[in-house]
């Protein structure tokens, strides 16, 4: 009792601040984690600043880039190819992710390793592979060329390179989502009369919405950023990273900075729009 009273007394006589300070200094502080972590965050912030400040200081380059039809076309090609790549991944990668999450075949490890290969390869190697596969004399390029689908220096080539490098990002994210849907839910759905496919469509898929959208966003981000793999199969039509590199070499830093700035701005806007649109997706709780 006496101790409590004394404690209360000291609390009242001194303001709250020293007590909080004491709390944080007594080993409860996260400073030891924040300080090294902030090095990384600082590098990102500085990187954004070295692009942004010169661009805002010389707005004529920004205006020039924004009104340049070549820049506009490169953005259009890049974003459209990115969406096409995500579409192809959604159609083929979603079933693959589901099969991987539910199967216990001994071959699963082999398939998983193959899916992860584009993640560990240097992008130039990925580019070489895509080129050899899809060039006009390539293993897939030749027969597809026969039905009028050309990849070399063509839009489909960009999409092919983007799909290739984005496979692991999409498949792994979606697969994790499927893994979180308890198989018991599917079992119950089936006991209630749903076939495996209907249980997938009516139960598993809606419960994986968030992971599918996240996987799509990751894959899209990876796809539109691809440079090495894309230029090896299709230097033209020019994608945005090719254009930035080209302008960096020919027109100088200021020109490439302006295009990069627009790209960053567009990506940020798209990310925010995406987050806003998906903030309620996959959340099923009356309490929140």
């Amino acid at each position: 009792m006496a101790r409590t009273a004394a404690g209360r007394g000291s609390l009242m006589s001194s303001p709250e601040q020293p007590l909080r300070k004491k709390y944080w200094s007594s080993g409860n502080s996260l400073a030891a984690f924040w300080i090294p972590g902030m090095i990384l965050v600082g590098i990102i912030a500085l990187a954004l600043l070295v692009i942004t400040i010169p661009v805002l200081r010389n707005p004529e380059y920004l205006a020039g880039a924004a009104s340049d039809p070549v820049v506009f076309q490169a953005f259009f090609v890049t974003f459209l190819a990115g969406f096409c790549a995500v579409g192809i991944l959604a159609i083929t990668g979603t079933p693959l992710a589901y099969a991987l999450s539910r199967s216990d075949t001994p071959w699963k490890g082999v398939v998983e390793t193959l899916v992860d290969i584009p993640l560990v390869l240097p992008h130039t190697v990925a580019g070489l592979m895509v080129y050899l596969l899809f060039m006009s004399r390539g293993l897939l390029g030749a027969p597809l060329g026969g039905i009028g689908l050309t990849f070399e220096d063509a839009f489909p080539g960009i999409v092919a390179a983007m799909v290739f490098v984005a496979i692991p990002y999409y498949v792994n994210a979606v697969r994790e989502g499927f893994g979180r849907v308890p198989v018991q839910l599917e079992n119950v759905a089936r006991s209630l009369g749903a076939s495996r496919a209907r249980a997938f469509v009516t139960v598993t898929l809606p419960l994986t919405t968030r992971h599918i959208m996240y996987g799509a966003l990751l894959a899209w981000g990876r796809a539109i950023g691809e440079f090495a793999a894309v230029i090896m199969i299709a230097y033209f039509p020019v994608v945005i990273s090719t254009l930035i590199y080209y302008r960096f070499n020919t027109g100088g830093i200021a020109e490439s900075q302006a295009i990069a700035f627009i790209l960053i701005l567009l990506c940020l806007v798209l990310f925010f729009v995406f987050r806003f649109l998906t903030r309620r997706a996959g959340v099923y709780d009356d309490r929140s």
Binding site: N187, A189, R190, S191
Partner: peptide, 19 residues
């Protein structure tokens, strides 16, 4: 397959469809 057996099934956690 389970959907053709006409057997109802209930798990300990009830496995209600959350969506």
């Amino acid at each position: 397959p389970p959907e053709k057996r006409g057997i109802g099934f209930m798990y300990q956690d009830y496995s209600l469809f959350p969506h």
